[in-house]
Design a protein around this nucleic acid. Structure first.
Lengths: 110, 110
DNA sequence: ATTAGTAGTATCCTAAAAAATAGTGGTATT
DNA sequence: AATACCACTATTTTTTAGGATACTACTAAT
């Protein structure tokens, strides 16, 4: 019983790692917590990501209902990416991740 | 200024993903939240991990001061792995990850 | 003495992730 | 008209993670 419960938790952890893990997903989501962004804006934010990878990751996040893509055709076509409601529900978690990350750096480096 | 702050946060997110990400790290840490475990005990817990990978991941976690390895030579040599204090500070984060993971499954699957 | 368990190592291999690089078709700016 | 920015796509190459498999050295139990 207790063991079964444990299994379920491990699955949950792995699911979440799948969603925010990898080299870029967490950072993309964190960047979008700030505000909605356009493709090249995200690209600059993230530093060294290639457009191919960014495209791929954004598609994955869209499919997982965390990010939505909106096209504005009023002037020159611009496209903005933002967190969905579900994506926004990640914000507190990302906040805690950032906080723990800062602590972690101190422990490991200092 | 504001931009600089943002960069730091993205770096933090990436650091944490590095620590708990990958296929096994999060699961290993989650398993050790339960109680200290021995090598083969962890191996059974995790299911299909190879000993090579488990060794490698445990070494990484040791280097990052999250897990400590203790040798008991009183009888047959046994070795136990447990969370360090720093590792234990991850527990609330893992708890939130599990909670969000459960919510996420509902959103994505129905 | 044999078997089984503990705690790993050593080698090789494959699949997937991501980088490098180049190019596309559009708009806006000067 | 030329340049530059936007939002990508295509192709090739490199890197990395992790699996498969086999083996080691030790101890404890039967």
């Amino acid at each position: 019983m207790k063991n079964k419960q444990k299994q379920i938790q491990l699955r949950d952890v792995q699911d979440v790692i799948d969603v925010i893990g990898g080299r870029w997903r967490g950072a993309i989501l964190a960047s979008l917590c700030d505000k909605e962004k356009r493709f090249n804006e995200l690209k600059r934010d993230l530093g060294i990501i290639t457009p191919r990878t960014l495209t791929k990751e954004l598609k994955y996040l869209e499919m997982n209902k965390l990010v939505s893509r909106e096209v504005d055709t009023s002037g020159a076509v611009t496209i903005s990416y933002s967190l969905t409601e579900h994506g926004k529900s990640l914000e507190p978690l990302i906040g805690q991740i950032v906080a723990w990350g800062q602590k972690h750096r101190k422990v490991v480096l200092g």
